[in-house]
Design a binder for these strands. Structure first.
Length: 303
DNA sequence: CTGGGGATGGGGCCC
DNA sequence: CGGGCCCCATCCCCA
């Protein structure tokens, strides 16, 4: 399975946004306002769609932005400090998507009210800030100690232990005991993830999340046209479209390409055996997209 | 309609 | 941990 498919595909990639809808915005201020509004609120639309929205906005900014006329860098994406502190909050990362599996008592929301910075573990709920620092993955207290503490602090704890962890089956006499156990152990270990604030994607490492966030912030800006990219090498490839540099040459013909992937696709045209074959008619194609077109055109309609 | 080039996005891997 | 690179995928456009 292609690696990039592990996270993508929450949307219909075949559809592009209707650019004409944006034509009503003719002033850069309007565009910036739209962009800022979009960035301020948690994104509830597919990532790709949003990126395209940025791209469209950017293209329009490039044309009309006074920053370009003055020779200044284009402020493609508003930075947090530009936005009002009340409206913008930094990317929230938490290591457990939902620290409790069991329903929480009213008002006990371990995450609400705790905007965490990147890579930080969300602090425990107020009721859990007693004596020990529990921020690490390793707890200084054992499960048995937890249970004992729970019993000692709860006058009814002597009764039958009726709160059971649905992950490890340990039982606790109090809800708080179970909750503490789950937050410190089971949930933290089984559900550790880093979530993007701008979209619904989750990653198992902070590095992966940071890289993904670049696709939202687009920090690499072309000095020539102002177009923004998520990574430096993407910008490099783009700059080649300005310079005409084509460092990747075909060994079979005289063609050269600015992008290695495009050279690879081109090399397929020299190959007698095409890489992508239709399962129905065995016809082969040099590209996956061509095979898909072929399938959509009706060859595989009988299946 | 098909094939191919150009441009770009994005996750994973390696250093 | 971050940057660079690899690889794959996709879309647009044109012949």
């Amino acid at each position: 399975m292609p690696r990039s498919f592990l996270v993508k595909k929450h949307f219909n990639a075949s559809k592009k946004p209707n650019y004409s809808e944006l034509d009503t915005h003719t002033e850069s201020g309007v565009i910036y306002a739209d962009l800022c509004t979009h960035m301020r609120k948690p994104c509830d639309q597919p990532t790709h769609k949003m990126e395209e929205s940025f791209s469209v906005s950017l293209k329009r900014v490039v044309i009309i932005s006074p920053y370009l006329y003055e020779g200044y860098p284009v402020p493609v994406i508003p930075q947090p400090e530009i936005l009002s502190s009340g409206a913008y909050s930094p990317i929230t990362v938490w290591t457990t998507a939902a620290p409790f599996h069991a329903p929480l008592p009213t008002g006990l929301s371990p995450l609400s009210g705790y905007p965490a910075s990147l890579g930080r573990v969300s602090p425990p709920p107020p009721s859990d800030t007693s004596s020990k620092d529990h921020s690490g993955s390793e707890s200084p207290i054992s499960d048995e100690e937890e249970r004992l503490q729970s019993k000692l602090s709860d006058p009814h704890a002597i009764e039958a232990e009726k709160f059971q962890c649905n992950l490890c089956s340990k039982t606790y006499s109090t809800f708080s005991g179970l909750g503490k156990h789950k937050q410190l152990h089971c949930d933290a270990q089984s559900r550790k993830s880093f979530s993007c604030k701008y979209c619904d994607k989750e990653y198992v490492s902070l590095g992966a999340l940071k890289m993904h966030i670049r696709t939202h912030t687009l920090p690499c800006v072309c000095k020539i046209c102002g177009k923004a990219f998520s990574r430096p090498w993407l910008l490099q490839g783009h700059i080649r479209t300005h310079t005409g540099e084509k460092p990747f040459s075909c060994s079979h013909c005289s063609r050269a390409f600015a992008d290695r992937s495009n050279l690879r696709a081109h090399l397929q045209t020299h190959s007698d055996v095409k890489k992508y074959q239709c399962k129905n008619c065995s016809k082969t194609f040099s590209r996956m997209s061509l095979l898909h077109k072929h399938e959509e055109s009706g060859c595989c309609a009988a299946h």
